[in-house]
Simulated assay, not measured.
Amino acid sequence: MDTRTELISEIAAFQSKVKVRDSNIGLIALNDPKFVARLREGRRCWPETAKKVRDFMSAAYTHITTADGTVIIRDIASGVTASGSSLAEAYAELRRLLAVKEPA
Rank of each mutant, 00 (worst) to 15 (best):
M1K: 13
D2V: 10
D2Q: 12
D2T: 15
R4M: 00
R4C: 06
R4I: 01
R4Q: 08
T5M: 05
T5Y: 07
T5E: 07
E6R: 15
L7K: 10
L7M: 11
I8E: 00
E10H: 08
I11R: 01
I11G: 06
A12T: 14
F14D: 00
F14E: 01
Q15R: 15
Q15M: 08
S16D: 13
K17I: 03
V18M: 02
V18D: 01
V20I: 08
V20C: 02
V20K: 05
R21W: 14
D22C: 07
D22L: 13
S23G: 01
S23I: 06
N24Y: 11
I25Y: 06
I25G: 11
I25A: 03
G26A: 01
G26T: 11
G26C: 06
L27W: 09
L27C: 07
L27R: 15
I28T: 02
A29N: 06
N31R: 13
N31F: 00
D32E: 14
K34T: 15
F35H: 07
F35G: 08
R38V: 07
R38D: 05
R40D: 05
R40E: 00
E41V: 05
E41W: 03
G42H: 12
G42V: 13
R43M: 00
R43E: 05
C45W: 04
W46Y: 09
P47E: 09
E48H: 13
T49D: 04
A50V: 05
K52H: 03
V53P: 03
R54N: 01
R54T: 09
R54K: 02
A60V: 14
Y61R: 11
T62S: 01
H63Y: 09
H63D: 03
I64N: 06
T65V: 01
T65P: 04
T65K: 10
T66R: 03
A67L: 10
A67T: 15
D68V: 11
G69E: 15
T70M: 06
T70D: 00
T70C: 04
T70F: 12
V71G: 13
I72H: 14
I73N: 09
I73M: 07
R74A: 00
R74M: 01
D75T: 08
I76H: 05
I76V: 07
A77N: 02
S78V: 13
S78H: 06
G79H: 12
G79R: 15
A82C: 08
S83V: 01
S83W: 14
S83L: 04
S83C: 09
S83T: 07
S85D: 05
S85E: 12
S85L: 10
L87H: 13
L87V: 07
L87M: 02
L87E: 08
A88W: 12
A88K: 09
A88M: 03
A88N: 06
A88E: 05
E89F: 10
A90V: 09
A90K: 01
Y91E: 04
A92F: 11
E93L: 09
E93F: 13
E93S: 15
L94H: 14
L94N: 09
L94E: 08
R95G: 05
R95A: 03
L97H: 12
L98G: 08
L98S: 04
A99M: 01
V100T: 10
K101T: 10
E102C: 05
P103Q: 07
A104K: 08
A104T: 14
A104C: 04
